[in-house]
Design a protein around this nucleic acid. Structure first.
Length: 579
DNA sequence: GCCGTTTTCGGCCCGACTGTTTTCAGTCG
């Protein structure tokens, strides 16, 4: 039983308890426990098996959760969870997904009107049976009807690159209003999540009304769902929600901190404030005895500083280890990887396979982006649709690379690479004697993605055991919003990468961003080097590196752990794998 | 349900907005 399964069970307990209207703090305890276990870098099963260790030593796990985790490890079952499942009508969860509908209202609808499906709810609204319930009214009834349509039309979360385009449109529209002194985007978008549920905007202005009027005239606006003195919510194309908050300059840092989140980070920061006799809200930091007198708030640095913390990069604000990192005396914050550390891009295609440009054109583009070296990694022959290279063509390409390198006068180096398929039956798509001549070999699964877990895992383990393979590209194959990851045992892949001294890729393409953040945490915890690559098929394709960096930062990857920050000499030495 | 450099009991982050209410509950972030 791995940690994920235990965490999932606790998460579901939290969800079901919440739907039963349980004490919110009890719900949160299960949620915190789930998060603690999901992000723990050692195995719960091993701690249970070790007679000298105690699960209660894991922060967030007390006696009850320790017992339940132990039961899960030893029996694979959690009777309380099964009981809760049987007691909780599935409709409650669906009802709470309607905007404006929480657990309390959902429970009333189910208990008083016997609502068991969204169709029944629509009918009840249309027959005006909802407005007579206590706490409901005609407006609530109408907003539920509207919410039902939104829930049906709402697209799922947007990818970070899609939200980036929306940001640019909003910026363009709002920047024309002089009353706006400053505009920042916050929320999970600023934290750099791979997908985003809604977009938060923060504005400094003395004239909130004119800002809201301006937003109301945004071309992509579909509806205004709320508008108060300082806050406004709209929906844009595909019912995606955008929230606006207008604040005075002296509160901007506190508001930005608050609206950047995450919720877990904010809870942790505010708890810390309480322990120091302080209180923090979106207007600033104040002493508990004089809550109206703010001692910090204009900048995020001031806010964190008032609590004795270093400023924390938004990508790290997930309620993991960032608070303890920021508490370290003397500013000993670990050096998280950043774009300026990147020396190379080790996954890209040319027009020899399915890319659009030549080797030289890709190399020039990489130079222009400040890189010191790249690897050309076209597809191997199995990927016939992309005109994958057979042994003869790949050897010719490598001769060409040798010629280009020989002519280079600026020290820029092109590595002879290949994105070699791991065939459905297991072996690599090119013979060992060919792979042996490469500087850099990526192993990739493109076919047989629906194979059972055991089979697909064994294919990748086989590739990692091949002495010529250096890294596994996009190790789970997911395409965000389009294709789920293959069913692969990433834990086994990570163990094998450790055993054979191999790397795993974080593919920077915003469609992929694979490894996921939690997989990255697990891999880095096991000391597997991560290689962040663009998988560029064109010159513009190289610009996606930043998404990969953001995701790596979210996982707290240090400069050292990212192979693309290394020098050419160090990388080549590493690929030799000599002791 | 968790947790303790005030506490082993009684807290647990905090505020805006809406709608249904005449002072507040529910929802959201």
């Amino acid at each position: 039983m791995d940690n994920t399964l235990i965490a999932d069970a606790f998460e579901e307990m939290a969800e079901l308890l919440e739907l039963q209207g349980e004490n919110p703090f009890r719900v949160r305890a299960y949620r915190n426990g789930a998060k603690a276990i999901r992000e723990l870098d050692e195995s719960i099963a091993e701690i249970v098996a070790d007679g000298l260790r105690d699960l209660k030593d894991v922060p967030g796990i007390g006696q009850t959760l320790a017992d339940k985790a132990k039961a899960l490890v030893e029996t694979g079952k959690l009777p309380q969870l099964e009981k809760l499942r049987s007691e909780t009508p599935p409709i409650l969860h669906r009802l709470t997904r309607i905007p404006g509908m929480g657990v309390k209202k959902a429970l009333v609808l189910h208990r008083e009107l016997g609502i068991n499906s969204l169709d029944e709810l629509r009918k009840a609204c249309e027959e005006h049976r909802v407005r007579d319930l206590k706490g409901f009214g005609a407006k609530t009834e109408a907003s539920i009807l509207a919410g039902l349509s939104i829930a049906e039309a709402a697209s799922q979360r947007l990818r970070i690159d899609q939200v980036e385009r929306l940001e640019h449109r909003l910026r363009e529209h709002l920047s024309k209003l002089p009353a706006i002194k400053r505009l920042e985007f916050a929320g999970s978008y600023r934290r750099g999540k791979d997908t985003i549920g809604d977009l938060d905007m923060l504005v400094i202005s003395d004239d909130p009304n004119s800002v809201m009027d301006r937003l109301a005239s945004f071309g992509g606006l579909v509806s205004i769902t709320a508008r108060g003195d300082t806050k406004m919510s709209i929906r844009v194309d595909d019912q995606f929600q955008v929230d606006l908050r207008v604040v005075p300059a002296e509160s901007f840092g506190a508001a930005l901190q608050y609206f950047t989140g995450s919720k877990e980070h904010n809870v942790a920061v505010r708890s810390l404030a309480r322990k120091q006799g302080l209180t923090l809200n979106e207007y600033g930091v104040a002493k508990l005895e004089t809550p109206d007198v703010y001692i910090a708030g204009a900048s995020e640095e001031d806010v964190y500083g008032a609590l004795g913390l270093n400023w924390i990069a938004p990508e790290l604000r997930e309620g993991r280890k960032e608070i303890s990192w920021a508490t370290q005396a003397g500013g000993a914050f670990p050096q998280i990887v950043e774009q300026s550390h990147i020396t190379c891009d080790l996954h890209m295609h040319t027009h020899a396979s399915d890319g659009l440009f030549s080797i030289e054109e890709m190399a020039m583009a990489a130079r222009a982006r400040g890189l010191k070296f790249i690897a050309i990694t076209d597809h191997s022959q199995r990927v016939s649709m992309a005109r994958g290279l057979n042994p003869q063509r790949v050897l010719m390409q490598w001769e060409e690379i040798d010629r280009i390198n020989a002519q280079a006068t600026d020290g820029f180096r092109i590595l002879k690479g290949i994105e070699c398929d791991i065939l459905e039956s297991g072996p690599m798509d090119l013979p060992d004697e060919v792979l042996a001549q490469a500087d850099w070999v990526l192993g990739s699964v493109h076919y047989g993605q629906k194979q059972p877990r055991e089979q697909i895992t064994q294919r990748v383990l086989g590739a990692l055991a091949n002495p010529h393979v250096d890294a596994i590209a996009h190790p789970t194959g997911r395409l965000l919003g389009q294709r789920p990851p293959y069913d692969i045992d990433l834990g086994a892949v990570i163990d094998s990468a450790v055993q054979h001294g191999k790397a795993l890729e974080l593919n920077a393409n915003p469609m992929r961003l694979d490894l996921s953040e939690l997989h990255l945490i697990a891999a880095a915890g096991a000391s597997v080097p991560i290689t962040i690559n663009t998988d560029a098929h064109s010159i513009d394709g190289m610009d996606v590196m930043r998404y990969g960096i953001i995701q790596a930062r979210r996982a707290g990857l240090l400069r050292e752990q990212v192979l693309n920050t290394w020098s050419l000499e160090r990388l080549l030495k590493w690929t030799q794998r000599s002791p």
